[in-house]
Amino acid sequence: MSRIEQAVLSAVNLIRLRRQQNPIEGKDIYSLTLDDLDFDSMDRLDLVMALEDYLDRLISGAGMAKVRTLTDLIQFLKKTEHE
């Protein structure tokens, strides 16, 4: 699993832990959408802030807002890694 994939998995599971939900497994990040996870606006805010901590860089909220699936999210983070 790449650093970005690991960061996404960790960030998603951090949010789920706060919501007292079971963590998802590594393989799930390739199939789940943000709607599947039922992430509301506050969760998405927490998600972007957690990703910034894990990846040690700023992440555009406008870019994140276009993401629908965790795969989209990983691709977005890879694409913007060196911006």
């Binding site: 606006s41 506050m42 998405r44 805010l45 972007v48 909220g61 994140m64 807002a65």
Partner: peptide, 11 residues
């Protein structure tokens, strides 16, 4: 005001 609004508010 929707599920992505706080991402844009932060920007």
């Amino acid at each position: 005001r929707d599920r992505n609004c706080m991402l844009l508010m932060r920007d």
